[in-house]
Amino acid sequence: MAEREPISTAPKDGSRVTVYWTDSDGVMNESLARWDAGDKAWWAYTDSRTQKKIEPTSWRPQATDDDGDEEEE
């Protein structure tokens, strides 16, 4: 798995990345998110229908099949 990096280094080209952020209850979350250039903000789905503007602190690239994160059957 790729190491976390500062959010300031995350791509802002609309691609989805895994981000880490703390919610209002102080709970650390891991979510898929993308940068919206129009809003100048990060957006993540909190459930299958709801998006939320978040302030992530770090990120990591999406895992690929080559990363070895896949479980073998």
Rank of each mutant, 00 (worst) to 15 (best):
V19K: 02
A44H: 11
K53H: 12
V19N: 02
S8C: 01
E5L: 15
D66S: 14
P6H: 05
A10W: 06
S15H: 06
E55C: 09
Y45C: 12
I54W: 04
K53G: 11
M1R: 13
G38S: 11
K52I: 05
A44V: 14
D47K: 10
S31Y: 02
A63L: 13
S8E: 12
D66K: 12
A63S: 13
P11D: 04
R34N: 11
P61V: 06
D25E: 11
A41I: 10
T64K: 13
R4L: 15
G68V: 03
T64I: 02
D69Y: 14
P6R: 05
T46Y: 04
P61T: 10
S15V: 08
A41W: 04
W59V: 00
E70N: 10
G26A: 06
G68T: 04
V19W: 03
M28H: 08
A41G: 05
E55V: 15
A37G: 07
E73Q: 00
T46Q: 12
E72A: 07
D23W: 07
A63N: 09
G38P: 01
V19Y: 05
S15D: 10
Y45E: 14
D25K: 09
E73C: 01
K12A: 06
P61E: 14
W21E: 11
S48D: 15
E5D: 03
Y20K: 09
T57A: 06
D67R: 03
S24N: 09
W59Y: 09
N29P: 03
A37C: 06
D25P: 00
D47A: 09
T18M: 02
A63T: 02
A41P: 08
S31K: 02
I54R: 03
P6G: 02
W21K: 11
E5K: 15
E5H: 12
P6S: 01
E55G: 08
A44W: 03
A41K: 12
D39W: 07
E70S: 11
Q62I: 05
A44C: 14
E71Q: 08
K52E: 05
E55A: 15
W35H: 00
D36V: 05
A44R: 12
R16E: 08
D13Y: 08
R60E: 13
D25V: 00
K53W: 12
I54Q: 04
D69C: 12
E70G: 02
T57K: 08
N29F: 00
S31P: 03
N29D: 02
T50I: 10
E70Y: 10
G38Y: 07
G14H: 08
G26V: 01
E73P: 06
D23F: 08
I7V: 12
T18K: 04
R34F: 10
Q62A: 02
T57V: 09
D25T: 04
D67M: 06
M28L: 14
W21L: 04
R49I: 04
G26H: 08
A33E: 00
D65Q: 01
T22Q: 12
R16P: 01
M1E: 13
W35L: 00
L32E: 06
E73N: 01
P56F: 00
V27P: 01
W21F: 06
W42V: 04
S15M: 06
M1L: 13
Q62P: 01
N29K: 11
S48H: 14
A41Q: 07
Y45H: 15
E73S: 01
Q51C: 05
V19H: 03
V17W: 10
A37T: 14
Q62W: 02
A10Y: 07
W42F: 11
